[in-house]
Design a protein around this nucleic acid. Structure first.
Length: 523
DNA sequence: AATGCCGGGAA
DNA sequence: TTCCCGGCATT
């Protein structure tokens, strides 16, 4: 109760704009010294008015009606009041309460507030009496409250701004939430956040801290972002307002956060983060000259199964191999068609036009590519881009590539290596100097243009390995006997454990989970 | 020390 | 079969 009341009072002392006394329309600023209620009798009803006594800049006191200064409130700083009003409303404190505090029927004030969201005065006549004094008292006494509110409000605003920032960032290069630090080095981003401090209520840093689960506390363990932190940051806002513990809110957030974490975790090792768009999710067939894009996973799977794998049976006979040949892509806007055409072939970096934002992601990948160099790059090179899931899909194709040669897979020939497309290409083209093989690796990458998640069901992946091996065997014919017996030589490629990390063990292929030879990232 | 995975074993 | 894990080979 008290709090509430105080809050309302906070109006006093607020700076407001008021119509110029001269009537020329130029607003003047002043500080609210007191508020009077008129027609109290109307009390509950609504139509009451309040008169604000404002101390003008020139030292004079003037009275203004609510309407007269309302604009001023909104424009300028009436932050505090506004907030408080919000809060109050949420609390739902009835008017009666107020009354009790004051001798009068201040409720009116409350009502007003509710109406325009401004703050209100609180008081009745008594207050108006010694404006200054009262004001001071009020302010000082209620200082805590107002502050709290204020911070809350600010927080809210921060939320909004944070959301906006995130939104904008999401479009930008990096992926996921961490985007905040995009500009900085990938690695650096975490650090910075930490150093900066998680989230400071008062500053806008909240945007950063808020979303960046990069919680500082966890710096030591980058791989495990700390969702909790972010969750905590919320609490302050929500919980209080709700009054309840807020298990509800927390619960809501956690899930999402967790998801992010999961994905983020995947990326940790490779670092590459992909931007996450809010766009459309499509599934693209990675089969060599296909590039077909469908809007549903089921559809693409069927397509692959029937068209490329030549299987007639339905999903039940699917061993998951299809997963390997398609990838989930997010299209920024539209240009789906375009993307498709270009995608299918591989066009080295050049084509990439589709996703404007891709630049960032590519870079990382490029660097990595260089490392991996060599033809076999297939497996490694991808990681950077795709991050979690992608590797899977890509690896398959790539592997086939290498192996084979007579198969359709390989095809990637740069069908359209067009000149250079424009902007997007820059990134790829520039850094892309790696070996000749590069063309291959890239080709795959380009498709992923918008790669993001993956999530094709992980569970299936398992089967894929088997098939793949079969295919290979066929292609390569007799030579392979060697490996079969004796222990497999340790594969060079990354395995599920490495790619996903222990934290995401559930994302490993079953073989890896069983400590068997990895079926997903075979060498 | 961390990985990858074979050989076994329990459910 | 599915799921695990001891333990050895590799890195």
């Amino acid at each position: 109760m008290h709090t509430r009341r105080l809050v309302k009072r906070s109006i006093l002392g607020s700076r407001v704009y008021a119509p110029s006394p001269t009537g020329d329309g130029a607003p003047v600023t002043g500080v609210v010294q007191a508020v009077k209620q008129e027609n109290r009798d109307a009390s509950a009803a609504g139509a009451r008015r309040s008169v604000y006594t404002v101390l003008m800049q020139d030292g004079s006191l003037k009275e203004f009606s609510e309407e007269e200064i309302a604009a001023g409130f909104n424009h300028t700083a009436a932050k505090v009041p506004l907030k408080s009003s919000l809060k109050n409303s949420s609390n739902g404190a009835p008017e009666s309460q107020k009354v009790e505090g004051v001798s009068l029927s201040p409720e009116t004030v409350e009502e007003q507030r509710g109406v325009d969201g401004k703050r209100v005065g609180r008081d009745p006549d008594a207050r108006s009496v010694s404006l200054l004094e009262q004001k001071r008292k009020v302010v000082s006494s209620s200082i805590d409250v107002p502050h709290a509110r204020r911070s809350e409000e600010e927080v809210d605003m921060d939320k909004v701004t944070a959301a906006m920032v995130l939104t904008s960032l999401s479009t930008s290069p990096l992926v996921r939430s961490p985007p905040v630090k995009v500009s900085e080095g990938l690695s650096g981003s975490w650090k910075d956040n930490g150093s900066t401090g998680p989230f400071t209520p008062s500053s806008n840093s909240s945007s950063g801290g808020y979303w960046s689960w990069s919680a500082p506390s966890d710096q030591s363990n980058p791989s495990t972002p700390s969702p909790p932190l972010s969750a905590d940051s919320f609490k302050p806002f929500r919980v209080p307002s709700l009054g309840g513990v807020g298990s509800g809110p927390a619960g809501l957030e956690d899930p999402s956060l967790e998801e992010q974490d999961g994905s983020s975790l995947l990326f940790d090792e490779p670092i590459p983060r992909k931007r996450k768009n809010s766009m459309k999710v499509m599934f693209k067939c990675l089969w060599k000259n296909c590039g077909k894009v469908l809007s549903t996973a089921a559809g693409i799977q069927r397509h692959i199964r029937t068209i490329h794998l030549g299987r007639n049976c339905d999903s039940d006979c699917s061993d998951g191999e299809e997963d390997f040949y398609y990838t989930e892509i997010k299209l920024n806007t539209d240009s789906v068609a375009e993307g498709l055409s270009s995608l299918s072939p591989v066009s080295p970096s050049v084509l990439s036009p589709p996703p404007p934002p891709p630049p960032p992601s590519p870079l990382p990948s490029l660097t990595q590519l260089s490392d991996s160099h060599r033809p076999p790059p297939s497996t490694d090179s991808k990681e950077p881009h795709a991050g979690g899931t992608t590797p899977l899909s890509r690896s398959a194709p790539s592997a086939l590539y290498l192996i084979h040669t007579d198969h359709a897979y390989q095809a990637t020939a740069p069908v359209s290596i067009p000149s250079s497309s424009s902007n997007s290409t820059s990134l790829a083209s520039t850094s892309f100097t790696p070996t000749n093989s590069s063309s291959f690796s890239i080709s795959w990458q380009s498709p992923p243009v918008t790669f993001t998640g993956n999530t094709v069901s992980p569970s299936k992946s398992q089967g894929f390995g088997e098939q793949r091996s079969q295919t290979i065997a066929v292609l390569s014919s007799p030579p392979r006997a060697t490996t079969a017996l004796s222990r497999k030589v340790r594969g060079e490629g990354k395995k599920c454990r490495k790619v996903y990390g222990m934290e995401n063990r559930d994302m490993w292929c079953t073989a890896c989970r069983w400590k068997k030879a990895c079926q997903r990232f075979t060498d």
